Amino acid sequence: MKHSKAIAAVVLLLAAGGGAYWYFRAGPGAGTNLTVGGLNLAPSGAAAPAAAANAPRSGPPVAHVEATKPRVGQSRETVTAVGTFRSNESVVLRPEVASRVKSINFEEGQKVKRGQVLVQLDAAMEDATVAQAEAAYQLSKANNDRQKVLGARQIATERSVDEAHAALKRDEAALQLARARLEKFTLIAPWDGVVGLRKVSVGAYINVGQEIVNIEQIDPLKVDFRVPENFLASVRVGQEIAVTADAFPGRNFPGKVFAIDPLVDEQGRAVVVRALIDNSDELMRPGVFARVTLTLNIRDNAMFLPEQALMPVGERHSVFKVVGGKALLTSVEIGRRQNGEVEVTKGLSPDDLVVSAGQIKLRNGAPVQVVPKDFQPGGRASPPPAGK
């Protein structure tokens, strides 16, 4: 009897082991639960869904992306250069005659008006020469008038009348010469401006051409700068410039091009451009180093995208547009780049929604969901910074 029970137990164990081996090899839901000796060998919670095995699989996961519409604005095609501020007019006052400085009629650094006497040289001898010439002229004039009267009465000869007239002309020319020489002893301002630092003092003897003082007209100011010759066809009179200077950080000086040198520098392969800027506050000074931004062309209603939205492939560029919840790869043509943005010249419209972040792993036609920039997996936004 005991022998029969032992055999039955062994058979039961073998059956249970075989059933377990079959179940785990086939996997959950591959067949019907196995019952041996009234025991259910399927693990708790294991389903046997024959229908679930035949259910259709779900599609690819939805990718979370950030998207933006093109920014519509003004596109400026510019070229940068370095240059120098220059006076609108500049001259160094120098005498045309040698003499002693009699008086200086200006203060250094002050404004002067056109025609204002700046320096008076000693002209005592020239004053005497002018007086002598005036006396000779008056005498010649009286003789000429007398000879005219006598000639009309046919008392004076025709020759004496001609000689009197010639003497008058000679003395008149001598007077004009004396007066012209006298004027050179008075140095005046040729136009409105600001005088610099004088190089002479009262009483000093100065020679012809010796430097006395410089005069600068600083409103407006000129800016001279060089542009590479490959931009020559794009540079035109009237174009706008924006000038900055290290001496005045954060300050812009707007201006316009008014002259272009017709000669291209063959050494530097550049053309010299001259612009005019307003300096009514007289803040800027000639000789200051300038950084110039020249606007070559302006386009209104241009479209811009963040640079990271581009998908460059060789020399071609593409972006992902969001259309109907899917990412569509679209070829675009780009223009200039500025401040982290790139101009799109072809391939988009202002109402298109373009993926700006998260496009690296996208494929054409992949389902996408546009999320805010601070989105985190799990549906929560990142917490705001402390203190806000």
Rank of each mutant, 00 (worst) to 15 (best):
P350H: 04
S234P: 13
K184W: 06
L328N: 12
Q132W: 03
M1D: 10
D352W: 04
H64Y: 15
A386F: 09
T293V: 12
N214H: 08
G19T: 10
R198D: 02
V235F: 08
P56T: 03
F289M: 03
L221F: 08
V119R: 05
K326H: 15
L362K: 14
T186R: 07
I104Y: 07
D224W: 14
P70V: 05
T68Q: 13
N105I: 00
G335S: 02
L197D: 09
S280F: 03
S349T: 11
V273N: 01
A47D: 06
G340A: 01
G73K: 08
Y23A: 04
G314C: 07
G314M: 10
K346H: 12
G29K: 03
G365M: 07
F289E: 11
A6D: 04
Q267Y: 10
S103Y: 05
K111D: 03
R236G: 05
G45R: 06
G238L: 00
V82S: 10
I241G: 06
P28G: 03
A173Q: 08
F304R: 02
K169A: 13
D261R: 12
N105Y: 05
N279F: 06
G268T: 14
F185T: 13
L263A: 14
V92R: 09
A26Y: 00
E158N: 10
A67H: 12
I212W: 03
A166W: 00
S356P: 00
D352V: 11
R86P: 13
L348D: 09
L263Q: 12
V227R: 00
T35I: 10
E172A: 14
Q116L: 02
R299D: 06
I260M: 10
G203E: 01
A136C: 02
V92P: 02
G324S: 15
G59P: 15
N214V: 02
E282P: 06
N144C: 14
R198T: 05
G18K: 12
V342N: 01
G17K: 12
T129Q: 12
H64I: 09
I104W: 09
L221C: 05
L182A: 08
T157F: 04
D351H: 13
A63L: 14
L139I: 13
R285N: 09
K388Y: 06
L283S: 04
A156V: 11
V202F: 00
G73C: 07
A15K: 04
G73F: 07
I334E: 01
R285V: 04
V243D: 12
E163N: 13
I334T: 14
A81Y: 02
V72K: 02
A152I: 01
G17C: 10
D352N: 09
A366P: 00
I215D: 06
N88M: 02
F231P: 14
V117I: 10
S382K: 15
T78L: 07
A142C: 01
T157N: 13
L175S: 05
A233R: 08
F85M: 13
F225K: 10
E266S: 14
A20I: 07
